[in-house]
Amino acid sequence: MMDAREGRRVAGQRAEGVAARYLQSRGVRILKRNVHSRGGELDLIGMDQEVLVFFEVRYRGSGSLTGGAESIGYHKQQRLLKAAAFYLHRHSLWNHPSRIDVVAIAPGITSQYRVQWIKDAIQASP
């Protein structure tokens, strides 16, 4: 039997698969999944035309009080920025155009999932 943590992990993997298929159907080339570093975890990394994109995938069930995008607080945003910066530094990609997008997934009404892709959702403060 699965405990709550294992259930969340499996649901997260399923949501990342849904997000990857959705993004690929819209022309994104997925390069990596679940990249861990000192900065944190990046769910998906892909190329949207010539832009390197770090994707945060959020799934919320039908009983959730907040949507996936709204569930990303200040501290999570800072961890994503740090993880993306670390990745860019490690791969010498500082001059490459990049952004952080959010893919919010929820149960759908007319289809199995409702997917919302928010481009440039998280930005570093100037």
Score class of each variant (00 low, 15 high):
residue 1 M to L: 04
residue 2 M to N: 03
residue 3 D to W: 01
residue 3 D to C: 01
residue 4 A to T: 02
residue 7 G to I: 07
residue 7 G to W: 13
residue 7 G to Q: 13
residue 7 G to C: 06
residue 8 R to H: 04
residue 9 R to D: 06
residue 10 V to G: 00
residue 12 G to S: 00
residue 13 Q to T: 05
residue 14 R to V: 02
residue 14 R to N: 02
residue 15 A to R: 01
residue 15 A to N: 02
residue 16 E to A: 05
residue 16 E to M: 06
residue 16 E to K: 08
residue 19 A to M: 09
residue 21 R to G: 03
residue 21 R to H: 01
residue 23 L to K: 13
residue 24 Q to C: 04
residue 24 Q to P: 04
residue 25 S to E: 10
residue 26 R to E: 12
residue 26 R to A: 04
residue 26 R to Q: 12
residue 27 G to M: 04
residue 28 V to P: 06
residue 31 L to H: 00
residue 32 K to C: 13
residue 33 R to C: 11
residue 36 H to M: 06
residue 37 S to D: 04
residue 39 G to R: 02
residue 39 G to F: 04
residue 41 E to F: 06
residue 41 E to R: 09
residue 42 L to A: 05
residue 44 L to E: 04
residue 48 D to A: 15
residue 48 D to F: 07
residue 48 D to P: 04
residue 49 Q to R: 15
residue 49 Q to E: 15
residue 49 Q to P: 05
residue 50 E to H: 14
residue 51 V to M: 03
residue 51 V to C: 00
residue 52 L to F: 11
residue 52 L to W: 08
residue 53 V to E: 15
residue 54 F to S: 10
residue 55 F to W: 09
residue 56 E to G: 09
residue 57 V to I: 15
residue 57 V to Q: 10
residue 60 R to D: 00
residue 61 G to I: 02
residue 61 G to E: 04
residue 62 S to I: 10
residue 63 G to H: 11
residue 64 S to V: 09
residue 65 L to T: 07
residue 67 G to F: 10
residue 67 G to R: 12
residue 67 G to T: 14
residue 68 G to E: 07
residue 70 E to P: 01
residue 71 S to W: 02
residue 71 S to T: 07
residue 71 S to M: 08
residue 72 I to M: 15
residue 72 I to K: 15
residue 73 G to R: 14
residue 73 G to H: 12
residue 73 G to T: 13
residue 74 Y to M: 08
residue 75 H to I: 12
residue 76 K to R: 14
residue 76 K to T: 15
residue 80 L to F: 14
residue 80 L to Q: 15
residue 81 L to H: 00
residue 82 K to V: 09
residue 84 A to G: 04
residue 84 A to Y: 07
residue 85 A to W: 06
residue 85 A to F: 07
residue 89 H to S: 03
residue 89 H to L: 03
residue 89 H to Y: 02
residue 95 N to P: 02
residue 95 N to K: 08
residue 96 H to Y: 14
residue 97 P to I: 09
residue 98 S to E: 05
residue 99 R to T: 09
residue 100 I to L: 12
residue 101 D to C: 07
residue 102 V to M: 03
residue 103 V to F: 14
residue 103 V to W: 14
residue 107 P to C: 12
residue 107 P to S: 11
residue 108 G to H: 01
residue 108 G to R: 07
residue 110 T to P: 05
residue 110 T to Q: 13
residue 111 S to F: 09
residue 113 Y to M: 06
residue 113 Y to S: 03
residue 114 R to S: 06
residue 115 V to D: 14
residue 118 I to S: 11
residue 119 K to T: 13
residue 119 K to C: 10
residue 121 A to F: 01
residue 123 Q to A: 03
residue 123 Q to E: 02
residue 125 S to V: 03
residue 126 P to I: 08
